[in-house]
């Protein structure tokens, strides 16, 4: 069991988590990073990062592979296993992964400190068959999957900048773009809305909510309902969902305090409501969620964890 005790266990291998690992190993701590998918986090879908200081036009993949190698070469251990639970075990927190089975040591690690860096994931429409049809007409990334809908009709759901940018991008690819939004006005930038209004193949479907996904094996349409409860079916091959993101913090709700949006409550010092547990990156309550602020959080959280260990 001794070999499974770590000074710092970081949960999540995106920019925040890997930066935390770099700072913690450089302070001579024994560090484990646990990641449920691949390392890299949300930024790997970005082809050209334009605002990371000193590395103009670096791709998300190149940057994150480099950060991963840096953490690894410095001595951080990285395991690919999804964390299911973090429990209080007195002196330690025990971190339980998907590999854990009762009575075995497999998939259980003990941490003197924990850094939560799980980021966020796309908010779903919460409609029946959504998961089944994801990758079969439903997408959460227009710039990733837009190319599959050349000359085909699509719908974009949402009212923020992501939805508007998605719609603009798709207007040049798809035959028709419906923008479905539950309000009459957009939260996103007015100039994007103005630009969209000049596109002949864009139709605004406002004050409407999505009520049903149509199609068994793949998306064939989207049913929407307006304020007067009138239903309408949009015939589309693709639905791009851009209704925001949700923090991936569900498993921590009994461990640390979350705000009403599910973000882990902590100030700029990255201390959570629980001693010895820190938070870094997009899943923390904060005003700006960017690569640099994720990286900054990682450094702060690791430094605070190191202080706590003294």
């Amino acid at each position: 069991m001794q070999d499974k005790i770590y000074d710092v266990i970081v949960i999540g291998a995106g920019m925040a988590g890997l930066t935390a690992a770099i700072y913690a190993v450089r302070a001579n701590k024994k560090v484990l990073v646990l990641e449920g998918k691949t390392h890299g986090g949300q930024i790997i879908t970005t082809f050209h990062i334009a605002n990371y200081p000193g590395l103009p036009k670096v791709s998300g993949v190149d940057l994150m592979n480099s950060v991963y190698n840096q953490a690894k070469e410095l001595g951080a251990e990285i395991e690919y296993a999804e964390v299911m639970k973090v429990k209080d075990e007195g002196e330690f927190e025990s971190v339980i992964t998907e590999d854990f089975e009762d009575g075995s040591d497999e998939g259980k690690y003990l941490a003197r400190t924990v850094i939560i860096a799980t980021g966020s994931s796309e908010r779903k429409l919460e409609l029946e068959n959504e998961e089944k049809l994801t990758g079969r007409g439903i997408s959460y990334c227009a710039t990733c999957d837009g190319g599959f809908y050349k000359d085909k009709p699509v719908a974009v759901v949402g009212g923020g900048n992501t939805a508007l940018y998605d719609a603009l991008y798709l207007a040049d690819v798809a035959s028709k773009v419906y923008i479905v939004h539950r309000r009459n006005e957009f939260r996103g930038n007015a100039f994007l809305v103005d630009k969209l209004k000049t596109k002949e193949n864009v139709e605004f479907v406002l004050e409407s909510v999505t009520t049903k996904l149509i199609g068994e094996k793949k998306i064939e349409g989207l049913e929407v309902e307006n304020l007067s409860h009138e239903k309408r079916t949009l015939t589309v091959d693709g639905i791009f969902v851009a209704v925001g993101r949700v923090p991936a913090t569900e498993i921590f709700k009994d461990l640390v305090e979350l705000d009403e949006g599910g973000y882990v409550k902590a100030g700029e010092d990255c201390h959570t409501s629980r001693e010895g547990v820190f938070v870094a990156g997009d899943c923390r309550v904060k005003s700006l969620r960017q690569l640099v602020t994720a990286s900054s959080d990682g450094a702060v959280a690791a430094t605070e964890a190191v202080h706590y260990l003294k």
Partner: peptide
């Protein structure tokens, strides 16, 4: 051009 694909390739 797909970043996630590049991450999956070595896997």
């Amino acid at each position: 051009w797909c970043g996630p694909c590049q991450m999956m390739k070595p896997v």
